[in-house]
Design a protein around this nucleic acid. Structure first.
Lengths: 221, 221, 221, 221
DNA sequence: TATGAATGAGCCTTCATTCAT
DNA sequence: CATGAATGAAGGCTCATTCAT
């Protein structure tokens, strides 16, 4: 699933990391930092970003408030670290690997949608918090938008290619279509996993895949 | 565009209004209340929900802090009033009025998408704030979800009907498809009008309409 | 029980009434005023003095806030009116009518204690509020103290007289004894009727009477 | 006066302390906390409970508002701490140690009354505030009532014992008598030390002791 | 590195009282 | 006399961040 082809997705750095605290120099330091990140994830998921207090995090990590600032400059920064730690799990093919040769485009789309939805499900609570932060803090809004735009652009290139091959509806604007279809899956995941709308995983994979394929008028040669 | 058929969308009451302050008994009171709501919209749009201070709102409305509490119990409550005041503008057919006889389903979908996108554009700033609040406050999350579910359900019924008429891909799960396609348009609007992704109105209408039609495999007889 | 003898107790005017609003001139006015006083008693007993809001009182009286100020200058003033309205009920012999000829001193003490305790019980909730106000507001503290001192002084004169007649322990300081014994009954009533200590009316009357008689070494000839 | 026999008075814990802030972990913290409690006593005695502002207390303690909340969650809570700090001083035998062998019951009663009155006098201002709080806040009402009931019960046991020994009027209900006589001394102290009634310490001790002894018909063999 | 006490700016909310209608 | 909208001062409380130990 994590072959090199999918790794090259243009994932922008999550944020300007230049002002970050130096990484821990000692083993004890590394342990404390890790405890803080784990504690932060617990607290963020439990209380949300706004209601999470730094003291809750340090209490959960069984360390002092002062220690927090040894490793992180702010709540924002530790949140970024939490997100980053969750990244490898969320790393998914990003876009239907339409350029793949070994599989039909349709199969790639299905696999990609499934991977995305499953990863989303695993991290649903954190995703909700990320939505929250994105909407509250323009900096994170930008982070989030850059990421989804990276995917959308990649998708747009894929669609363009398929259009060139005559496999996809030539009438579609590839950029806007990519934006729309990616957004569709993301929104559905959010509605079901975060807000509690009802749908099974199979229904979601089937339907989104079919809507992609139908929507693009993909010729499944 | 606003014929009676489209007015019957099942818009649930925005929230439990039982604990609300009594409505103004005099014309003067009504004027003050209206000034507060208008001022609140200005302030919310300018500063966002979290950074909006009650004193900013009363200052903008040229009244005292005390007057605020004559009409609203909290920031939350006046925000609801602002949203409510914006409702008539956001009221759109919701779903392609597939049951309409006078127009082809495709035309109905296009008109509906256009109406939604234009209304969203007019209220983009407020919609961003609503996203913010929805993500912060579970109460508003519920409000927002109830509304989108009402539309999705209506759309699902439309899709089911078209499937029965043999006009739409019978393989699709109508409920999940409705959820997905509605979400697609909503998300696109959010990305473009709120987050700054680039697309013209024409591109958005064309693409989403085509994705709907293609996605449903709608036979445009 | 309310013979003229007991009416002459030196009840000081409850407060300086010189700044009071003029009494209502019309029948409608009198009705409104009465409704306000009745409503105030309800609200004070329900919420206590501090938590009673003028708007609650006017709402209970089904009149406007403005009307309140037609009849009363302040919360304080209407509270005084409530207390005053409750006075006739609380009017009790005050002190064992030791000067009475028709009954033995012991019988007078018993009747007096019973009367006091029963009146207290009837107005327990209001008495609790009065304690509250007395302790909060020095003006009412003075009012309350003046009243109890009037009783104590009268009692002191009675004790002195009985000492002169050789019927009471001559070693006792009549003033302090009167203060002590009156306080004893008042405190017991407070403990039982307001704070919930357990005792039957009979126990209370029997015990306080016996403690008075024993305490004074009253010769029950 | 403070032999072990008198120390075992059943003083209930003042309140549910489970929600209290963690006690200071360092000497510096302990110093700040102590300064706050001392400052609070000054401010409460000067301004009363209701008019005491938290900022006055922190100003008096020369620390920031934030520090207050490091140690106390509310005005209520620091008041409890002030009362607690005053407790050791108010700790008195409670009831005439009638069970003592070395002294006559009468001597014990006198010593006990004197101890109580003197302690009350030393803390008169604080006692007035406590009355105020007790009457305002049901939680403190309960605290106060529990304490006085503990004493009254102890007194009741003493009276019962003396009745069994044939030294006290067998007609008296020991529980109600104890409640009455304890209340008598408490109320007298309140009247004189808090409300300004006039009596010397000697008069108070003499009279209350005599009223106890007479009241109980104590045989002073 | 670790600790945890100290900081303090700033906003929401209440409600007795006034006054124009 | 009645109405009810308008007023506005005042203070409790939070919590991210700093810094002395």
């Amino acid at each position: 699933m994590s072959n090199s082809k999918t790794e090259d997705v243009d994932v922008p750095p999550l944020a300007d990391t230049s002002s970050f605290r130096a990484p821990p120099a000692t083993a004890r330091g590394a342990r404390t930092r890790a405890a803080l990140v784990a504690a932060a994830r617990v607290v963020f998921e439990r209380d949300g970003y706004l209601d999470a207090r730094l003291t809750d995090i340090t209490a959960e990590a069984k360390c002092s408030t002062g220690s927090f600032y040894t490793y992180f400059a702010s709540k924002e920064e530790i949140f970024l670290a939490v997100i980053e730690a969750a990244q490898h799990d969320m790393l998914h093919p990003g876009f239907p690997r339409l350029d793949e040769d070994e599989a039909s485009p349709a199969a790639v789309i299905r696999a990609s949608n499934r991977a995305y939805l499953e990863a989303y499900k695993r991290n649903a609570r954190l995703m909700l918090i990320l939505e929250q932060v994105a909407v509250i803090d323009p900096k994170f809004r930008e982070v989030r938008r850059a990421r989804s735009r990276a995917f959308a652009e990649r998708n747009a290139r894929g669609i363009k290619r398929l259009q060139a091959q005559g496999l996809v509806d030539p009438e579609l604007d590839p950029v806007v279509a990519a934006l729309s279809l990616s957004g569709m899956v993301g929104r559905l995941a959010y509605n079901v996993f975060c807000l509690g709308d009802k749908a099974t995983m199979k229904q979601m994979v089937d339907t989104t895949t079919r809507l992609w394929i139908n929507g693009l008028k993909l010729k499944d040669e």
